[in-house]
Amino acid sequence: MALAAETDRPPSPPPAARARRKPLTWSRARHKALPYLLLAPAVCFELLVHIVPMLVGIWISFKQLTVFFIRNWSSAPDAGLANYRLALKFNSAIGQQLLHSFYVTLGYTVLVVAISWFLGTGASVLMQNPFRGRGTLRTYFLIPYALPAYTATITWEFMFQRDHGAVNQIIVRDLHLTSHVPFWLIGGNSFAALVITAVWRTWPFAFLVVTAGMQSIPTDLYEAAAVDGAGVWQGIRKITMPSLRPVNQVLVLVLFLWNFNDFSTPFVLFGNVPPQQADLLSLQIYDTSFQTWNFGSGSAMSVLLLLFLLIVTAGYLVATRRARSADA
């Protein structure tokens, strides 16, 4: 169990001396056990809601667990690697669909993360110097993040209605940008609708994190730069952005994982059956599991999703660490 050497352990007397002075008494044993007792409820629940389900999930992914075996899963026949083979056979219907979902999810995630990061960082950099109303504006920008995901998304769903939504009112009837009235929640536009909705909810988080990260940049850096004749723009480029780099590295990773796993935005926006162009992976897995009731296949897909995320995360951490040590 001793996983990592604890470096911050207080210096202790050599074991022999300690044993002589303090024989193993009941109270010392209790003292040793105390952290485990405190931890016990959390560990129990971690086992119950994370570890056991994960192991069960892996086990199911090797089973042919369909609706017939839901109530009696031990009799589900073995599937070997069939579920994985099915998911990864990209010339079959299911594999093709999964690969398509993967690309859609990747495109969606990259777009949402990039735009949200850009808006959040831009806004917090522009708002670094005090001006009238800054505090109010900062609070205001956080409202989309504070709203429950589903109410925000339902509101966007209403706005994207073809005939009585606000979006078509603006682009067709108010601004006359196009003469035909587009659909937003079906067809190609649905991907744009999905990205816009997600960005609206996500960028305030980037804003919040970057704003907090900027608090730790010492102000005398800017003062020194000003004395040397650097303007605001140079200050942003030469001081603010490099100082924000560690914050940004974590922020981008967190945003990536959140959006790659995003379920509520497409599920609320489109319902159970999303348009082909906006069919995200989590929704695809959900449909495989709870619409077609093929749990073995659904589990195999979620294990594959997890493996992909682990590889991306590990690769990202290694790459950023290398970049950081190359800088130093």
Binding site: A2, A4, V254, S282
Partner: peptide, 24 residues
């Protein structure tokens, strides 16, 4: 002993997709 293991478990499960736990 086990402190670091607990911390890592807690941190990583926070990042896992919900669907992974929902199904099982």
């Amino acid at each position: 002993p086990g402190r670091q293991l607990f911390r890592i478990t807690v941190l990583s499960t926070q990042m896992f997709p919900g669907i992974l736990f929902l199904l099982p």
